[in-house]
Structure formats: structure tokens, C-alpha cells
């Protein structure tokens, strides 16, 4: 394609459509921004479902239908959110979601440091920061898996009322996106080790970092909504 684009001439002027940095965003970066737009709309659909269901959730309490959230059966388990989970045996387990959140936020910073490094042509700094980002991303996924096992142990699942359905769908699809982002980071690191990126050529690095920031921002929203937004008691 590059040679075709370069061959495209008008009145003798050579027009190189793919010359990097000639006019703003590179094609891959713009493509990623548009892809992120579509992802935003995907999560918007899920968030809309969550709020709609949460707002209309009702339960029978003392013979009366009342609005509450989370449902009564999980009220004890989740009463001390976001920092601890109270198990059915009465133990409080440190809820790993808060550290997981901090880890993901930190990974956004390391990711950006990596982008800044490659823009300076500092390949070592770029690789080190992207490597750290990848490790932090995997750590987040492990912590989320641990969180799931605790909740599964308490009998929570996709089928346990709309609370379980929305919680696991939203966090699950976010986790899947973290996984996808980690794959992209791994490819970038692999290609980076092969020396394929430089100050002049790093569109994929930038696109991947944009995606990683997006995944991080979705998580901040999810964390705020699922953990920090106060519940409604009967």
C-alpha cells in the first residue's frame, strides 16, 4: 500500500499519504480511537442495563414490596464494601478489589511512561515500562479471579438475582477487555524486543496505550458504580 500511495501523483506533486506525523494522527491511532468509541457504546449498553435494573429492583420485605440494592440475600456479605467481604462463616476477607484498582491505575501511568520513552527513542525505557504494565495487568486479572472465587464461595453467580447477573457481566466483560489489552501489550513488547519501534515509528505502541487507558477508565467507572455508590437499604 505504501508504494501505491506514494505513486499517487497530481500534477507532478508526490503525495505520500502514509508519511508518519505529516498531518496529526497516524491511521492506526485514529482507527484505535474509533474502535474505542465503539467500545464505549458497548459498555454504555451494559451500564444502561445495570442502572435500569438497579433502579427498578424491588423485593418483598415484611409483606411489602420495597426498593433496595443490593438484594437482601447479599446485604450481609457486602455490607462493608468496598474494603472487606464478610463471608458466611463471619470472617471478613480483605476485598482485593481496592488494591486491584490501584494496580490498574498505576499500570496506566507506566504505560504512558513507555509511550513517552519511545517518543524519545529510549527503547529500554519503553520496554521496561511496557513490561511492567503487562505484569500489572496480569496481576489485576489474578486479583479479580480471586475476588470471583470468594464470591462464588458465598453462592453468588450469574444466576443469583439481577445483582449477580449485572455484577458478573459488567466485571466479566471488563476483565475480558483487560485480557485483550494484555495480549496487545504482549505483542507490543515482543515486537519492541525485536526492535521494531522507534521515535519515528510507534503507531502501534500509541494505539495500544490508548486502549489500555480506555480499559482503565472503564474500570474506574465500574469501581465507582459497583463499589462506591451507596446501596439502598429497606
Amino acid at each position: 500500500m505504501t508504494s501505491d500511495a506514494a505513486a499517487l501523483t497530481t500534477h507532478g506533486e508526490t503525495h505520500d499519504a502514509t508519511e508518519h506525523g505529516a498531518a496529526g494522527l497516524g491511521n492506526p491511532v485514529l482507527g484505535m480511537l474509533l474502535f474505542i468509541t465503539s467500545e464505549v457504546m458497548f459498555f454504555a449498553g451494559l451500564f444502561a442495563a445495570y442502572f435500569s435494573i438497579r433502579a427498578s429492583y424491588q423485593e418483598l420485605v415484611n409483606g411489602q414490596l420495597v426498593h433496595l440494592w443490593p438484594p437482601a440475600q447479599f446485604a450481609d456479605t457486602l455490607k462493608a464494601l468496598p474494603f472487606v467481604i464478610t463471608t458466611s462463616e463471619g470472617h471478613t476477607v480483605l476485598n482485593v478489589i481496592l488494591p486491584a484498582t490501584l494496580i490498574l491505575i498505576a499500570s496506566s501511568f507506566t504505560c504512558q511512561l513507555g509511550v513517552n520513552a519511545i517518543k524519545r527513542d529510549d527503547r529500554t525505557g519503553f520496554l521496561r515500562n511496557f513490561g511492567v504494565t503487562l505484569v500489572l495487568g496480569i496481576l489485576f486479572l489474578l486479583l479479580q479471579a480471586y475476588d470471583y472465587t470468594v464470591l462464588f464461595g458465598e453462592g453468588m453467580g450469574l444466576g443469583s438475582t439481577t445483582f449477580g447477573t449485572t455484577y458478573f457481566t459488567l466485571t466479566g466483560f471488563h476483565g475480558a477487555h483487560v485480557f485483550g489489552g494484555a495480549l496487545m501489550l504482549a505483542v507490543v513488547v515482543y515486537r519492541g524486543m525485536a526492535g521494531q519501534f522507534s521515535a519515528r515509528h510507534h503507531d502501534m505502541v500509541e494505539a495500544t496505550s490508548l486502549y489500555w487507558h480506555f480499559v482503565d477508565i472503564v474500570w474506574i467507572l465500574l469501581f465507582s458504580v459497583l463499589y462506591l455508590l451507596p446501596g439502598v437499604k429497606a
Binding site: 464505549v40 457504546m41 458497548f42 454504555a44 449498553g45
Partner: peptide
Amino acid sequence: MSTPVLTS
């Protein structure tokens, strides 16, 4: 803007 919402 709309197709991802159908996907959801």
C-alpha cells in the same frame, strides 16, 4: 455508535 449497543 449503535452497533455495539446491539452487541450488548
